[in-house]
C-alpha cells in the first residue's frame, strides 16, 4: 500500500465468478500515520473504505474487460469493527451483488489475521474511460498487481 498515492490493493489473488479476493499490507510508516494519530497510528476508516472500493473497482474492470472505468458513487452500511495499525496484512474481498445499467453494487469486506475489520455496500458508476492516460494507467497497475489485462 502507498497511502499517499491511493495505491490500496497490493495484489489480486483470484477472481471467481462475481467475487474478487485481494491482499494488501498497511505500510510501516506513512505521513498519514503521523497525523492519524500522533503516538497511536491507525488506518483511517476512509482509507479502508477506499481499499474496499478499489477492490470492487478491479472486480468490475475484470468483469467488463477494461471497457469502462468504475467511479465510487455511494457507500452504505459501512461498519468499522476493529482497529488496523501499521504493518498489518489485509485480506480484501468484494462480490458484485447487482449489475445495473451504468452502475454496479458490491458487498465488500476486509479481514486481518482472520478478524473482520470492516464491511460496506459499495456502489460504483461505470462509464467509458474519460482519458486514454487513465485507461493506460489502470491497465499498467492491473498488470503490476496480478490482474489479467485483455489486449
Amino acid at each position: 500500500m502507498r497511502l499517499e498515492h491511493f495505491l490500496m490493493v497490493d495484489r489480486i489473488l483470484a477472481i471467481e465468478g462475481e467475487e474478487i479476493r485481494a491482499e494488501s499490507t498497511t505500510p510501516d510508516t506513512s505521513p498519514v500515520f503521523e497525523g492519524h494519530f500522533p503516538g497511536h497510528p491507525l488506518m483511517p476508516g476512509v482509507l479502508l473504505v477506499e481499499t474496499m472500493a478499489q477492490a470492487a473497482g478491479w472486480l468490475l474492470l475484470a468483469l467488463n474487460g477494461f471497457s469502462r472505468m468504475p467511479f465510487l458513487a455511494s457507500v452504505k452500511e459501512a461498519k468499522f469493527r476493529a482497529f488496523v495499525g501499521p504493518g498489518a496484512p489485509l485480506a480484501i474481498t468484494a462480490r458484485r451483488i447487482h449489475d445495473g445499467s451504468g452502475y454496479a453494487v458490491a458487498a465488500a469486506r476486509i479481514e486481518s489475521a482472520g478478524k473482520r475489520i470492516c464491511d460496506a455496500e459499495i456502489t460504483l458508476r461505470t462509464m467509458p474511460f474519460p482519458a486514454p492516460d487513465l485507461e493506460a494507467a489502470m491497465r499498467a497497475r492491473a498488470a503490476a498487481i496480478g490482474l489479467a489485462v485483455p489486449a
Partner: peptide, 23 residues
C-alpha cells in the same frame, strides 16, 4: 443523479429487471 441511482437499484431489485437507464 445519485438519488436516481439508488432509485434505479431499488426498482431493479423490486421488479427483478435491469432498467436500461443508459440506453
Amino acid at each position: 443523479s445519485l438519488d436516481f441511482l439508488d432509485i434505479v437499484f431499488a426498482i431493479d431489485k423490486e421488479f427483478g429487471i435491469k432498467v436500461p437507464v443508459e440506453q
